[in-house]
């Protein structure tokens, strides 16, 4: 589904990703861990199409097509979803209105009928209930004044409504209390199917107890220096990154 080959990217002549190889098949969950500043969010941003990052080498294929050639909205409509590490506040834009526009943009692209206000509300309220989100959320401006945890849950709500094929979750667990973590992880697991995949960026093994990864990758200084299974996360929890960095050097 996703094939990242020798990807190099940077910002203003500063190299950040220094040759990433990673392939993700449908039905898989991949975790990406790594110290602060190693390039995890940069990878997520490049996959989602944020402007300002220059891809200086390599390629990314998504279902066989060049992903990097597409505008962010085209990627989204094709099923790529990024849950932001820092969701953006958008004052004045009503959450329900925003989300329905997004859902319908994707549906239209897929040749499905648009959801009318009634059906949208029905669908979104059901998902909100699952995520323990209060309904008055919908009346508030997007992310504005939301607590850290509410913002993260809102990302998962959007994910649930957009139903992506490739979901990239950038530290969706940070800032969540223990109950919220479980709710969010349940939400993510519920969206898991054989024909989609998840790329989960996290610092904590705790999340991976709930969202069990098939592969764990360690990113360091713009390169994947180790790939293992879920036990690698446990090992990292115990020993930190130093030993790996030394091993890789």
């Amino acid at each position: 589904m996703l094939e990242i080959k020798k990807l190099q990217a940077g910002i203003e002549d500063k190299p950040i990703l220094k040759g990433i190889d990673l392939s993700v098949n449908a039905g898989e969950v991949h975790a990406i861990m790594g110290p602060n500043g190693s390039g995890k969010s940069t990878l997520a941003s490049v996959l989602a199409g944020r402007e300002g990052f220059d891809v200086t080498g390599g390629e990314v294929l998504y279902n066989g097509n060049d992903l990097l050639d597409l505008a962010p909205e085209e990627r989204a409509r094709d099923g790529v979803f990024l849950a932001f590490q820092y969701p953006v506040e958008i004052p004045g834009v009503n959450s329900a209105y925003f989300l329905r526009s997004a859902v319908n943009a994707v549906r239209t692209h897929c040749g499905e009928e648009e959801l009318d206000a009634m059906n949208f509300l029905k669908a979104v309220k059901a998902k909100m209930k699952e995520l323990g989100l209060n309904e008055d959320f919908l009346k508030r401006p997007v992310n504005t004044g939301f607590s850290g945890g509410e913002k993260k849950r809102n990302e998962i709500l959007q994910m649930a409504m957009l139903n992506p094929r490739l979901a990239i979750l950038d530290e969706t667990d940070s800032g969540l209390d223990i109950d919220a973590l479980r709710i969010v992880a349940d939400g993510v697991n519920r969206l898991k199917r054989d024909d989609n995949a998840q790329l989960v960026i996290t610092h904590y093994q705790r999340l991976l107890e709930y969202i069990v990864p098939d592969f764990v990758h360690v990113l360091h200084d713009g390169r994947i220096i180790k790939t293992g299974d879920k036990s690698l996360a446990l090992e990292l929890e115990e020993k930190g990154y130093d030993w790996l960095v030394k091993e890789a050097a």
Binding site: G49, E73, A76, V88, G92, F98, S101, A105, L162
Partner: peptide
């Protein structure tokens, strides 16, 4: 207009023009 906000909206499938209009509407709507 806030580029981060435009990007956020685009990653949800909205094209640039729609995103800008939405932000503008929000700005006045606030």
């Amino acid at each position: 207009m806030d580029d981060d906000a435009i990007f956020y909206l685009r990653t949800r499938g909205l094209d640039t023009l729609t995103a800008r209009r939405m932000l503008m509407h929000g700005f006045a709507g606030e």
